[in-house]
Simulated assay, not measured.
Amino acid sequence: MHIKAMLKAVILCIVIFLLLKYLAPLFSPFITAVFISIILEPVIKILMDKLSLSRKFSITIALLFFCIIFFAIIYFLIHNIYKETLSILKDIPNFYEKINYFLQKYNVLINKYFHINEDGQNITAIDTMKVINIFINSIAKLKDGIIKSILALPDIFMYITFSSAAAFFILKDRKIIIDIFKRNVPQNIFKITLKINRSIINIIKTECMLIVISTLQTITGFFILNVKYALLIGIFSGILDILPLIGPALIFIPWALYSIICGDVIFAVSLICLYIIIGITRQMLETKFISGKLDLHPLIILLSIYIGLKFFGFLGAIFGPLFALIIKMIYEESINQKQVNI
């Protein structure tokens, strides 16, 4: 019984995976439209209830403000990230000086506590410089990517306009679409789909809110600490917050260790304090919005992230845990239905 339920869940996830892998690029504007409609539905309800506006007019206002805010954010991010990227590229000689200073301190500590021979230290230094060269190349690629994004703005404008138009009709005919789906899909599948849909939407909303708050906290903290390139590093840290269990620690911990080795202990302590504040805030908000948490074992989350990254790239960090959650929910629902039938 349990094996059949698990097989059913796995097969459904494989079907969803194949659809996402091969058909999602073709229907991406409509998928984006669905996400836009999910985001705007609460806003539309507020406009209808508080201002007594018609649903059609509320949808138009909500979509108009969404487009204005979206393009304002895109302009702000591209403009400022491009400026900071150019500043980093101009500051490369200074980076080399800092790295050389760090390597000297690092080699002294290694020799003092571990007694590694000179050849071992040289190998370590060469590897570190390779990492720095990779970092510099990544910054150069980021600059090229931003330039491509600027050139692609007309295409982005058309894409968002098309998605917004599709979102308008999805929002306007929401009840009709749900009724058609309900009439043409078996009742048990409809209930499971509805339950999965609500859970996934809840998780995505909660995670997006937590990531935005974490990113704003990080950027604000970096500005207070007078960190150069605060916006660029803060946004990157916020993106890393997508990864459960690891997240911004990939930036904060190595950076704090680097600062300690270079003798800037006060800055290292400040970074750790900022990291702790961000972590505590996230835990408090996760506790408040407990229904949006992934109810999965940490090992399953890590495994699903790894598999997701292999198949979907960076977006796999989101899709992987969601697939694991879908398998779990379908499995539990199948077991519950079997028990009810018995």
Rank of each mutant, 00 (worst) to 15 (best):
N202L: 12
F222T: 05
L153V: 10
K148E: 02
I246Q: 08
L245G: 01
I301R: 05
I73P: 14
A256H: 13
I213N: 06
L303N: 12
A62W: 13
I272W: 03
C67L: 14
L245I: 05
I211R: 08
K130L: 07
I160V: 15
E118F: 05
T161F: 13
I201A: 13
S138F: 15
Y113N: 04
K175H: 12
I170T: 03
I110N: 08
C13I: 00
Y22V: 03
Q217C: 08
G234E: 12
D173K: 04
I280C: 09
D241K: 10
V34L: 13
I36V: 06
I74P: 00
Q339Y: 06
K310D: 06
H2C: 02
I46H: 06
P29T: 05
K4H: 08
L86D: 11
M158H: 15
I177M: 05
D91Q: 15
A165T: 12
G247S: 11
P254G: 14
S37W: 08
F30P: 00
M48W: 12
I73C: 10
S259W: 11
M209Y: 04
I261V: 13
K141D: 09
D127S: 07
K195H: 09
F168A: 08
I239H: 01
L89F: 04
I330D: 01
F190C: 05
E118V: 00
K195N: 10
I92G: 11
I61K: 09
K21E: 13
A165E: 06
I139D: 10
G145D: 01
F319N: 00
V131A: 15
I201D: 15
F311L: 10
I201M: 04
Q217L: 08
F190V: 04
L26I: 09
I81Q: 14
Q104T: 04
K83I: 12
Y82M: 13
I300G: 10
K45V: 11
F66K: 14
I46Q: 13
T161Y: 04
I201P: 08
S28K: 15
S52Y: 09
C273P: 02
A324K: 01
F71A: 09
S87H: 13
F65N: 05
L171R: 02
L285R: 01
G238E: 05
D155G: 06
I3R: 03
K45M: 02
F162A: 15
I211G: 02
F222G: 02
L47G: 01
F169T: 10
L216D: 01
N94Y: 15
K338C: 01
I110F: 05
I3M: 12
D49Y: 09
N117I: 03
I260L: 12
K310P: 05
A230C: 13
L20N: 15
V34K: 06
K105D: 02
D119K: 06
N188Y: 05
L40D: 00
I180H: 11
F70V: 13
G238S: 10
I156Q: 01
E41W: 07
E332R: 01
